[in-house]
Amino acid sequence: MKLLNTELKNKVLKSMLQILNTKRTHIIEANKKDLDAFKKEDQALYERLVVDNKKVNEMIEAVNAVMLQDDPVGKELSNLTLKNKLNIVNTTAPFGTILIIYESRPDVTIEAAVLAFKANSKILLKGGKEALHSNLILEKCWHEALEENGLSKDWIKLLHLKREETQAFLKNPTETIDLIVPRGGERLINFVKTHATCAVLVSGRGNNFLYISEKADWSKAVNIIVNAKTDKISGCNALDKVLINKNLPEYEIKLKMLQEKLEKHSVDIVVDAKVSNILNTKETISDNDIWHEEFLALKLLIGEVNSLDEAIEVINTYSGKHSAVIITEQTNEAMTFMHNVDSAAVYHNASTRFTDGGQMGVGAELAISTDKLHHRGPLGLNQLVTNKYYVYGDGQVRV
């Protein structure tokens, strides 16, 4: 796609702000069609689907925040003149065409598109069928904003493909795709990795762990667990597993206190064999595969460990490499945990719910990357570019 100047990109986003506000009622009405058709057995997916006045306000805020950010394209990363007088300048550059595949979440149709467009990339949006009406009207809003400013609708395009058609498209795209971002559960991620023929940046899977050290402040631990588990069960930054050091003072009493607190919040507790000796009325896990599972529900697994090293080993073996927490009052222990746990975000005495672009100062995000290339963590505007070398010479040849 053509390289656009910052002024034109911001004009499109300014138009989009007005259109979203003007069409607010129509957007909510379209979303109601999706909600009415949705079978509510999956509460997390249903939560992600809802678009109300608050959600429209958040969409508007996301577009406005990106509009106010500096253009990420064309920033000089390095400038070096060699002995042979070649001037080599490394700058940020657009990806080209990005495909994002996501389930539910109509707000992704806004956040992903605004980021890609400001980063001068074309974006193909493959939303789930459960959000069809919501995504159609949001795409229409984008097209209106683009056309108002003399630009092609091709910058932001919704793909209307069934599963088999998506598989065929990934194997043999009808246009060049430079990056695919699957934003969803393990099944979606594996589907994309299996069939894609270009770079894939994995996002969306949580399965986050929290470790309570024997040096923990118990009050902090309980408050953080409750927040991380119950604040938003549909978030990929929600908590799924708690590991407790068996040397924690008053261990048995505190385990029962945690059980009581979680049950007041309607959390379904499952336990490993060691914890079942104390919380013997709770379901004991029978299959180790549950340690890999992201619950997306009011469900929490509690397990016992003997040491910090064991906790780190368990987390690195089973977690989704998204977010992990240590609760301890000893700084050195916290740093050992944070240096050695392999996650995009590691926390000391804080909730996993902060793994979010807006909460981390990044702003609107395309996704939370759990990959190590090319970026890990929130994919904000400044992370949605690649780089390009400009080499200036005056007849130099290599000898």
Results as ranks from 00 to 15, higher is better:
residue 343 S to T: 15
residue 47 E to G: 07
residue 342 D to V: 00
residue 44 A to D: 11
residue 234 S to R: 08
residue 293 E to D: 13
residue 294 E to T: 07
residue 20 L to G: 01
residue 134 S to I: 05
residue 47 E to Y: 03
residue 284 T to I: 11
residue 276 S to V: 07
residue 83 K to G: 05
residue 374 H to W: 13
residue 232 K to G: 00
residue 6 T to D: 12
residue 121 S to H: 04
residue 157 K to A: 04
residue 17 L to M: 05
residue 264 K to E: 14
residue 181 V to R: 02
residue 186 E to D: 08
residue 92 T to H: 08
residue 296 L to G: 00
residue 132 L to E: 12
residue 140 K to N: 13
residue 143 H to C: 09
residue 235 G to Y: 06
residue 276 S to N: 14
residue 334 A to R: 02
residue 99 L to R: 01
residue 378 P to Y: 08
residue 121 S to V: 03
residue 171 K to E: 15
residue 177 I to H: 01
residue 250 E to N: 14
residue 31 N to W: 10
residue 296 L to F: 10
residue 115 L to M: 08
residue 218 W to I: 01
residue 320 G to D: 01
residue 51 V to S: 06
residue 129 K to Q: 06
residue 231 D to K: 11
residue 55 K to E: 14
residue 254 K to S: 05
residue 130 E to C: 02
residue 309 D to T: 10
residue 152 S to L: 14
residue 289 D to I: 10
residue 225 I to E: 08
residue 103 E to S: 11
residue 75 K to D: 07
residue 25 T to I: 09
residue 231 D to P: 00
residue 136 L to C: 03
residue 128 G to D: 01
residue 204 G to L: 03
residue 155 W to S: 01
residue 246 K to G: 00
residue 118 K to I: 12
residue 205 R to P: 01
residue 165 E to Y: 01
residue 18 Q to Y: 05
residue 93 A to K: 05
residue 70 D to M: 07
residue 136 L to T: 13
residue 223 N to M: 04
residue 338 M to E: 15
residue 84 N to G: 04
residue 15 S to I: 04
residue 186 E to F: 00
residue 312 I to S: 06
residue 289 D to K: 10
residue 89 V to P: 01
residue 149 N to A: 04
residue 84 N to K: 13
residue 167 Q to N: 07
residue 273 A to T: 13
residue 31 N to L: 04
residue 111 E to S: 11
residue 94 P to C: 07
residue 348 H to R: 09
residue 202 V to Q: 10
residue 238 A to H: 09
residue 138 L to I: 15
residue 201 L to M: 14
residue 86 L to R: 06
residue 174 T to G: 08
residue 34 D to N: 06
residue 284 T to D: 10
residue 141 C to D: 04
residue 34 D to C: 10
residue 302 I to F: 09
residue 374 H to F: 10
residue 282 K to H: 12
residue 174 T to C: 02
residue 51 V to A: 03
residue 279 L to K: 07
residue 72 P to T: 13
residue 72 P to Q: 08
residue 101 I to A: 04
residue 108 V to I: 15
residue 127 G to L: 02
residue 341 V to Y: 00
residue 104 S to T: 14
residue 160 H to N: 08
residue 61 E to L: 11
residue 216 A to P: 04
residue 329 E to K: 15
residue 97 T to I: 08
residue 397 V to T: 13
residue 242 V to N: 01
residue 133 H to Y: 14
residue 345 A to E: 10
residue 28 I to G: 12
residue 371 D to W: 05
residue 296 L to H: 02
